[in-house]
Design a protein around this nucleic acid. Sequence first.
DNA 1: ATATAACCGGAGTGGGACTCACTTTATTCG
DNA 2: CGAATAAAGTGAGTCCCACTCCGGTTATAT
Lengths: 191, 191
Amino acid sequence: MPTSRPLRADARRNREALLTTAREAFLAGEDIGVDEIARRAGVAVGTLYRHFDTREELIAEIYRQALDELCAEPDALLARHAPDRALREFLDLLVEHAATSRGMSFALESVLATDSAVFADSRRRMADCLDALLRAGAAAGTIRGDVDGWTVLRALGGVCGMRATEGWRDEAAQIVALLFDGLRYGATTAR
Amino acid sequence: MPTSRPLRADARRNREALLTTAREAFLAGEDIGVDEIARRAGVAVGTLYRHFDTREELIAEIYRQALDELCAEPDALLARHAPDRALREFLDLLVEHAATSRGMSFALESVLATDSAVFADSRRRMADCLDALLRAGAAAGTIRGDVDGWTVLRALGGVCGMRATEGWRDEAAQIVALLFDGLRYGATTAR
DNA sequence: ATATAACCGGAGTGGGACTCACTTTATTCG
DNA sequence: CGAATAAAGTGAGTCCCACTCCGGTTATAT
């Protein structure tokens, strides 16, 4: 008998159904409302709201799950590559991640708009990943040490929020390259 | 008797009142709806919609006006400074511009969200300004020539969209510095 | 002065997020 | 088993917006 009440069987099922349904729809680039999400998941809106305080929180939860994979990467990358190379790879992964989430970018917008606590947490985790890479690079002397992950993430904000325009991937790659050049040690000091 | 029908006197008055009212509210950081904008301007919603197809278009128009000043800068800067210096100054101005418009950033979000044609035009003009500076820098050999204004603007997207967080200005300055370091000639090629 | 084209008002529509009073059901325990 | 009961589910209804529509009003041309 767990202390924190282990969620009834049907409740768990419904919660899962809601998350899966919403994720699939968003990744497919569909913009559907709460009523439709609930309908497809085979429940009523009230049920959706029992599990998620708000539409945004549901979206944030989906996003958080996708983020889990991404946040596991830095360690793996640092094990296989030199720090600066690892950083570069991770930046590319971020773009890739944005590509996957691009379908739900419109959904994310509402989340970004109202700096919900849940999403703030996602940003924090992302920034932490970058911090680890930056610190490693700084220690190796190949990346400047006066920039933190939060700043880099901010700088990438434009990329992540990119709309599904033609050729956005090329643009994103250019921006990452630009950013990386700015980050490399030796590019600094002179002004 | 001008050919393109010069807008009736009362119509012009109302249009101006709407723009002024909305601008003031947004710059003050207020998020008000169309009904409230109309009420404060002393007209009815119908009048608002006679002048602007949509709420977003009204916002975009306000933004466009603010942009006019900014787009006059590059020429002045290039006249007074070396191209790379001019570019740097302009980037700082962009941040400043974001500061002024920060109050209406939430409003801008909806504009950025639905790539409205009117706002696309604003982005285009901004990119053109950057292009002029970049070309001048490339000609002088102090700025790399393989990046266009559009890309730089994208990279600055995160800055412009920044929320009113504590210390955002410092972060913005860091990002601009980072970006500029990436743009400077010589930082490139190596990969 | 009259015609008429443009303008204005504001109740009404539609759509989407969210609520709540009530019903159903999983779980627990005698 | 078979209540008892607390948790979960339901969905019609509310609220809040952006946006529309059309009858009444007003500026301008002749």
